[in-house]
Amino acid sequence: MLVSRLLEYVGLEPGRFEMRWISASEGGKVAETVREMTERIRKLGPNRKMRDER
C-alpha cells in the first residue's frame, strides 16, 4: 500500500504497480493476474519514469 501510494505520489500512473499475495499452488491465479496486469500496462503504454537511456 505504501509503495503504490508513493509511486503515484512521485508521478507514476495508478495501476502500474500492483501487489498480490499468491501461493505457489495457485497457478491459475498467477496466470490471471499476469494477464490482467499485462493488459492494463499495454493500455497505459510505456513507462516514462526512471527510464534508463543506455
Binding site: 508513493l6 519514469k49 526512471m50 534508463d52 543506455r54
Partner: peptide, 25 residues
C-alpha cells in the same frame, strides 16, 4: 547487474531517490 549506474541522468537520479526513500521508509 546494471542496477543503478553512476551516470547522472534523470531516470537514474529518480531511482536513486526512490531506493533511498524505501531504505529509510
Amino acid at each position: 547487474a546494471c542496477w543503478l549506474s553512476k551516470r547522472n541522468h534523470p531516470g537514474q537520479n529518480y531511482l536513486f531517490h526512490l531506493i533511498r526513500m524505501f531504505h529509510v521508509a
